[in-house]
Design a protein around this nucleic acid. Structure first.
Length: 422
RNA sequence: GGGGAGAUACCAAAGUGGCCAACUGGGGCAGACUGUAAAUCUGUUGUCUUUCGACUUCGGAGGUUCGAAUCCUCCUCUCCCCA
C-alpha cells in the first residue's frame, strides 16, 4: 500500500494535487506542515496534521515542521467569518516555544536519513522589506486569483482587512522559500488550508518554474455533526496542564461507536489488519467497548506516556469499574493523590458536620447551592460512590484515610475533596 | 449625507404597563433505558431561602407611574435601504 492509499484508507485524504503519488514514488520527498502558534498548547484537532507528518516520515520521506511565528502575527482568515484580533508578539513567541516542545514528541528529529527539520517563518520574514515583498512576490500573483479563494470570497460581504487578505501570499511565500532552500515539494494540512497551499504551488510554478504538490485531510467531525475535540471544559488540549491525561483518556473512551471506528484509523498507527480485527471484535461484543478502550489507550500513550496512561486507567477502573472506594482505604496519601491526579479536587477545612448541599457548593464542585439542591432532587449526587439525599451530613467515619471524600454528580463527574477534621 | 429597523438569559427568538425570573426552540446538566455508545422518553436550566417568599436581571444612564422588559428623554452599539 503506498502512502496515498494508506492515508486514503484512513480517511485522511480530502484533496490531492494530481501527480503527488508519482512524486512520492520517484524519490525521497520533503514535505511540510505549518502550525500557527495561536494558543499556548496544541489541541487534538492539531493532531491531524501531526499524524500526516508522521505518516510521511514512516514512509521514508523527510518532514519539515514549520512554526508560524510570522503567519501567526497576521491571522489566517481560512474558515473564519470575522476579522480576528491580532496577538501580541510576546504571546506568539511563547506559544512557539511550547508548541515546538510538544511537536518534538511526535516526530523524529534525530534520524540521520530522514530526521525532521524545524523552521520558523519569522526567521525569514522579520527582516523582509515590504517593498521587496510586493515587488518580488506580489507581482507573481494577481488579486483576481487571490479573490477567487473561498477564504476571501466568503468575506467580501462582511469585510476583511488587507492584513488577512495578504495571508495566503505570506503562507505561499513560505512554501516557495522551503522549496528553494530545502527542495521541499509537498505541503500538507487541513482542508481549510487548500487555498493557501495552492497559492504556494502557484508561486513556485511562476517564480521558480518548479512543480510542487499538496494533500489535505478532511475536517474531523463527529457523527452527530457537532464539533470534534470539545469537551465540557472546552478544547481537549495536548498539554497535561490544560487537559489532564485522565480527562484526555476519558474523552476518547467516550466516543460513539461510529466515531471511534473513524478515529482509530486517523489517530493511531495500528495496521489495517489490526484495526479491522478490533472493529470486528467490537461489533461482536459492543458492550465491552474494546474499540473505544484501544483507541483511548493508543492516543493517550502517543500524546502523554505509558505511565500517564496507567494512571488514567487506574482512575477509570476505580471510578467506573467494580472497584469500590474501600480499595482506597489503606493506601498512602500520595498513592491516592496520584490515582486522582486527573480529577478536580479542592481542600475544604471543617467539612465534617456540613450538610451535603453546602458541601457541594462550598467545595466549588457545583456552582451554587440552588444547583446542589436541584442535583440532590434529581438523585444524582453520590458520596464515596453511594447515592445520598438532601439530608446527608458528612461524618468523620466517611472520610477515606481520615482526610478524603469522593463527591460525584451523575455518572461521570467526580470531585475529590480533602479536609482536615475539626 | 438622507431614511428605516433593532439591542431580551449560553445561543436563537417571543413578550409592547401588573397574571414576567420572562412563551418557545436549540444547547447544557441530570434521570430512565443501555455498553461511561447512539437513538428515545422525562425532569431541570438567575441568586439566596427546607417551604412561604426575598433579591438582582431584558444594551447604558436618567425619568413618568402605586407598578416598567414594555411608556418618555439622552447616550452607546449593530443591521438594512437610498445617495
Amino acid at each position: 500500500m503506498n502512502l496515498i492509499e494508506e492515508l486514503e484508507w484512513r480517511g485522511l485524504i480530502h484533496d490531492v494535487i494530481p501527480g503527488t503519488q508519482e512524486q512520492l514514488e520517484k524519490e525521497q520527498t520533503t514535505g511540510y506542515v505549518g502550525f500557527d502558534p495561536t494558543a499556548p498548547s496544541l489541541h487534538i484537532g492539531n493532531l491531524v496534521p501531526v499524524v500526516l507528518l508522521k505518516h510521511l516520515q514512516r514512509a521514508g520521506h523527510k518532514p519539515i515542521v514549520l512554526m508560524g511565528g510570522a503567519t501567526g502575527r497576521v491571522g489566517d482568515p481560512s474558515g473564519k467569518d470575522k476579522e480576528r484580533q491580532l496577538l501580541d508578539a510576546e504571546v506568539i513567541e511563547s506559544n512557539v516555544l511550547t508548541q515546538t516542545a510538544q511537536l518534538q514528541k511526535f516526530i523524529d528529529f534525530e534520524n540521520t536519513d530522514n530526521g525532521a527539520i524545524l523552521v520558523n517563518n519569522y526567521d525569514w520574514f522579520k527582516d523582509m522589506n515590504f517593498l521587496d515583498f510586493i515587488r518580488e512576490t506580489g507581482k507573481h500573483i494577481t488579486i483576481n486569483y487571490m479573490m477567487a479563494k473561498d477564504s476571501v470570497k466568503n468575506r467580501l460581504e462582511g469585510g476583511m482587512s488587507f492584513t488577512e487578505f495578504s495571508y495566503q501570499l505570506v503562507q505561499g511565500y513560505d512554501f516557495l522559500k522551503l522549496y528553494v532552500d530545502y527542495d521541499c515539494k509537498l505541503q500538507m494540512g487541513g482542508s481549510d488550508q487548500w487555498g493557501n497551499i495552492t497559492t504556494g504551488t502557484e508561486l513556485i510554478r511562476r517564480k521558480a518554474g518548479g512543480e510542487a504538490f499538496a494533500l489535505t485531510a478532511p475536517l474531523i467531525k463527529k457523527a452527530d455533526g457537532s464539533k470534534f475535540g470539545k469537551s465540557e471544559g472546552g478544547n481537549v488540549w495536548l498539554s497535561s496542564e490544560l487537559t489532564t491525561p485522565y480527562e484526555f483518556y476519558q474523552y476518547w473512551l467516550n466516543t460513539s461507536d461510529e466515531d471511534a471506528e473513524n478515529y482509530i484509523k486517523v489517530f493511531t498507527f495500528l495496521s489495517r489488519s489490526e484495526i479491522e480485527e478490533i472493529v470486528e471484535n467490537h461489533n461482536k461484543e459492543p458492550h465491552l467497548r474494546k474499540l473505544q478502550k484501544r483507541l483511548a489507550e493508543e492516543v493517550t500513550k502517543l500524546v502523554h506516556s505509558e505511565k500517564a496512561l496507567n494512571v488514567a486507567r487506574a482512575s477509570t477502573e476505580l471510578l467506573f469499574g467494580r472497584g469500590s472506594v474501600s480499595m482506597l482505604h489503606g493506601m498512602e496519601d500520595d498513592e491516592i493523590l496520584s490515582v486522582f491526579d486527573g480529577v478536580p479536587q479542592a481542600n475544604l477545612n471543617d467539612a465534617v458536620g456540613m450538610g451535603i448541599a453546602d458541601l457541594l457548593h462550598e467545595s466549588g464542585f457545583l456552582a451554587s447551592k440552588g444547583e446542589a439542591r436541584r442535583a440532590l432532587k434529581e438523585n444524582s449526587i453520590s458520596v464515596n460512590k453511594e447515592k445520598v439525599n438532601e439530608a446527608f451530613v458528612l461524618e468523620e467515619k466517611a472520610l477515606i484515610n481520615q482526610k478524603y471524600v469522593l463527591l460525584q454528580h451523575g455518572k461521570k463527574k467526580f470531585f475529590l475533596l480533602s479536609t482536615i477534621p475539626g
